Simulated assay, not measured.
Amino acid sequence: MTQPRELILYTTLGCSLCEKAKLEIWPLLTQFGLQLREVDIADNEALFERFSLSIPVVGLGDPTEVCTWPFKKEQLEEWLSKRLI
């Protein structure tokens, strides 16, 4: 059995928009066989520089190819479909 792929949520402590983003993300995890992993951008200088003004941001591992907030479930579903199916 293979491990599910990860959907990375670039976030930071106290990000209220990130909590809203999770509501859009959760329904898609099972559909795409993904596991959510939260990455705090405050722990990585490069990620902080890249995303400090745009979190929440989700990606599949390549921080140069991400889906940025604001997004709705349908928009994220389309973004994921183009990359996973």
Rank of each mutant, 00 (worst) to 15 (best):
77 E>P: 07
11 T>C: 05
80 L>P: 04
78 E>R: 11
62 D>V: 03
30 T>R: 14
56 P>Q: 03
24 E>W: 08
15 C>P: 05
80 L>Y: 06
31 Q>W: 03
75 Q>M: 09
78 E>F: 07
84 L>C: 01
8 I>T: 04
46 A>V: 13
16 S>D: 10
79 W>S: 00
45 E>W: 12
23 L>M: 08
34 L>G: 05
34 L>F: 07
1 M>Y: 14
14 G>H: 04
2 T>E: 10
42 A>V: 10
36 L>Y: 14
83 R>E: 09
7 L>S: 04
2 T>A: 12
64 T>G: 09
43 D>M: 10
48 F>N: 03
9 L>F: 07
65 E>F: 05
39 V>I: 15
76 L>C: 03
26 W>S: 15
24 E>M: 11
27 P>T: 01
6 E>A: 15
40 D>N: 14
26 W>L: 15
48 F>Q: 04
58 V>C: 04
60 L>H: 01
56 P>K: 00
17 L>M: 13
76 L>K: 04
61 G>L: 08
26 W>K: 14
35 Q>A: 09
36 L>F: 14
12 T>D: 11
65 E>Q: 11
9 L>D: 04
85 I>V: 11
75 Q>D: 13
78 E>Y: 10
70 P>M: 05
21 A>G: 07
2 T>V: 14
47 L>W: 09
1 M>G: 15
40 D>G: 07
47 L>P: 02
39 V>W: 09
31 Q>A: 12
52 S>F: 14
46 A>D: 10
48 F>A: 02
54 S>K: 15
85 I>E: 14
32 F>R: 06
52 S>P: 08
51 F>K: 02
18 C>D: 03
4 P>K: 07
84 L>R: 04
8 I>P: 01
59 G>L: 00
24 E>H: 12
9 L>T: 10
78 E>L: 11
15 C>W: 00
22 K>D: 11
17 L>I: 02
3 Q>L: 14
4 P>D: 09
75 Q>R: 13
43 D>L: 14
50 R>T: 13
47 L>A: 08
14 G>K: 03
75 Q>S: 11
29 L>H: 04
55 I>A: 03
84 L>G: 01
84 L>H: 05
70 P>T: 01
56 P>T: 00
13 L>Q: 15
26 W>V: 15
27 P>C: 03
76 L>M: 05
53 L>F: 12
5 R>A: 13
15 C>A: 07
48 F>V: 03
78 E>I: 04
28 L>M: 06
43 D>I: 06
66 V>Y: 05
58 V>W: 02
9 L>Y: 07
